[in-house]
């Protein structure tokens, strides 16, 4: 199965199960969780079901394209469903079947793995899913987001698309993944991986990055002041990515590091609270829509 077909199958599968299939969010981020489709939507009482591909950037993971398993830019397939359905594990196993993996032919395990992202005040408990010893998916019941208790609780399912496809295609390097009939993952991304690694570790200008962080932070604060939730959150993401670039460059000292994380967390918390207030002011519209739908089915 080609890389693009894995994505198409998952879109089909989760779309059929009521998830809205959205597109990648156009701000750099380290994980699918940080997309506003997850980070913001997990907050508050409104039901929400979403699935999307998310490109992720982890500057420090760059290896100039030399390591077959590690890259600074990769893809996650992210599902978020609120409230968490009772049969979600079975549904997940069905999604593997949709990809041609029959769980009964393999050793599929749900192994404890809890998740925490201190920089955005979020944590949850769950598992990593092992397929014959390989971690292919992360399963998390969100307990807190932006420092707010998640009520109801969302379930987040994150597939490692490259790992899963490598398994399906029986290849040992990310760059050998067949994207479609004529192109490999390497054809699409290898050169960029080399260049970005060079940028992350050598060419980025720390002074510019420090200045950018400051500007993004100021912008986020002023946008929070004007209650513009999404633009404010985008600037928090920019702060976070800029911090990651500085970190990869090795120019953040110890004391600064803790302070930077605290600054990002502080902004993320404010945005989370602002989002909740905004939705409340709007009368939690998705909650009403869900009730109307319930009535209709009765």
């Amino acid at each position: 199965m080609h890389f693009q077909n894995v994505i198409a199958k998952l879109n089909q599968f989760w779309g059929d199960r009521g998830c809205v299939i959205v597109q990648p969010y156009d701000t750099e981020k380290g994980a699918g969780t940080k997309s506003p489709h997850t980070f913001l939507r997990a907050i508050g009482p409104e039901p929400w079901s979403v699935a999307y591909v998310e490109p992720c950037r982890r500057p420090a993971d760059g290896r100039y394209g030399e390591n077959p398993n590690r890259v600074q830019h990769y893809y996650q397939y992210q599902v978020l469903i609120k409230p968490s359905p009772d049969d979600i594990q079975d549904v997940y196993l069905d999604s593997l079947r949709a990809l041609g993996i029959q769980p009964e032919d393999h050793d599929v395990r749900f192994v404890e793995d809890n998740w925490e992202d201190a920089a955005v005040g979020a944590w949850g408990v769950g598992w990593e899913v092992w397929l014959d010893g390989m971690e292919v998916t992360q399963f998390t019941y969100f307990q807190q987001c932006g420092g707010l208790d998640c009520r109801p609780v969302s379930i987040e399912i994150t597939y490692g698309l490259e790992r899963l496809t490598m398994y399906l295609q029986n290849v040992d390097s990310i760059f050998d993944i067949r994207w479609n009939d004529h192109l490999t993952y390497g054809d699409v991304h290898l050169q960029g991986e080399i260049e970005s690694s060079t940028f992350n570790f050598e060419a980025s200008n720390p002074e510019t990055l420090f200045a950018l962080f400051q500007l993004y932070e100021q912008e986020a604060e002023s946008l929070i002041g004007r209650s513009l939730v999404l633009p404010a959150y985008e600037h928090v993401l920019k702060c976070s990515h800029t911090f990651n670039l500085l970190d990869a460059r090795g120019v953040i000292s110890v004391t600064e590091r803790t302070r930077y994380i605290a600054r990002i967390r502080n902004l993320a918390r404010q945005v989370a609270q602002l989002y909740l207030q905004q939705r409340e002011k709007l009368g939690f519209p998705l909650l009403k829509a869900a009730q109307v739908q319930d009535c209709a089915t009765v």
């Binding site: 009964e104 032919d105 393999h106 050793d107 395990r109 014959d132 010893g133 398994y167 029986n170 040992d172």
Partner: peptide
């Protein structure tokens, strides 16, 4: 934790 009859497939996956 899988089917004992599928041990070959499971071993191959773990080997990778």
């Amino acid at each position: 934790n899988g089917d004992p009859g599928k041990s070959d497939v499971i071993a191959a996956g773990n080997e990778r």
